[in-house]
Simulated assay, not measured.
Amino acid sequence: MRHKAKNRSAELSGAPRTKPAEVRLDELMSAAEKLFLSQGVDATTVNEIVEAASVAKGTFYHYFTSKNEMLEALAKRYTERFLNSVQEAIDRCPPDDWEERLRVWIHANIETYVKTYRTHDIVYTNHHHHDRANQEKSALLDQLLEIIEGGVLAGVWAPDQPKIVALLIYSGVHGAADDIIASKTTDCTSFARHVSDACLCMLPRLTASTK
């Protein structure tokens, strides 16, 4: 009876129940990410991660076998958040304004990358050379190619090879983002506009004579 009364009292007082597993996992990963950013992956211990997340050590090993496995999960989460951020920006554009959608894709990629590149560099240490077919690149390319092919179907552009143009724009945008990070430029908006202008030159428009 005493146990039941205690539980009932907790319910009435609004005491928090155990957090859902997905919330606890997200908090654990966020704690690890913060530590990795502040002191490096190698210098961060599992004990520090669970202490920062306020969970038992067993909770870490319930989800991950090692820090490397956690890094893989962080990479997946980073990619999902990156894609969602870009897609939300695209979705705010008029559905039939393909040039604007491309410009927004470019701007959102540059802006998001500049804001999150430190996490990117932690979770994608082999991004540039050893893992050329990485998930992040494939997903962003699919997103970009969908815009280009949408413009082609709508009669806006007429590239001979849409996939090649998408590859060039993807590489150019992320190379440009690396440059703006290195130069510590703060005005992403103006920079992204100039990058967009350059990228649009690779997409010839249909003229009245070619339609």
Rank of each mutant, 00 (worst) to 15 (best):
V173M: 07
V165M: 09
Y170I: 04
I169Y: 03
P159R: 11
Y170P: 01
V165Q: 03
K163C: 01
P159M: 08
P159Y: 06
R118D: 10
G155E: 08
G150W: 07
D142A: 12
D131N: 14
H130E: 13
A158D: 07
P159T: 11
E149L: 03
I122Q: 06
K163L: 12
A166I: 03
L167K: 12
R118C: 01
D121V: 08
H174I: 09
Q161W: 11
S138K: 12
G151A: 02
D131T: 12
S138P: 00
A166Q: 02
H127L: 14
P159A: 07
V156Y: 02
H127Y: 15
Y124H: 15
D160F: 13
K115H: 09
Q161G: 00
R118E: 13
D131G: 03
N126I: 05
L153A: 10
D160C: 01
V152R: 05
Q143T: 05
G151Y: 08
G150R: 06
S171I: 04
G172T: 08
L153D: 06
Y117W: 15
I148Q: 04
W157T: 02
Q161H: 15
V165L: 10
A166W: 05
V123Q: 04
Y124S: 11
A158F: 03
Q135R: 09
Y170T: 07
T119K: 13
I122C: 09
N126E: 15
E149T: 04
H129K: 10
L168K: 05
T116V: 00
A133M: 11
Q135D: 14
A139W: 03
G151D: 05
T119M: 13
E136C: 10
E146F: 02
G172M: 07
K163I: 05
S171T: 13
H174S: 09
D131A: 12
I148G: 04
P162Q: 01
Q143M: 14
E149I: 06
R118F: 01
G150F: 05
L144D: 06
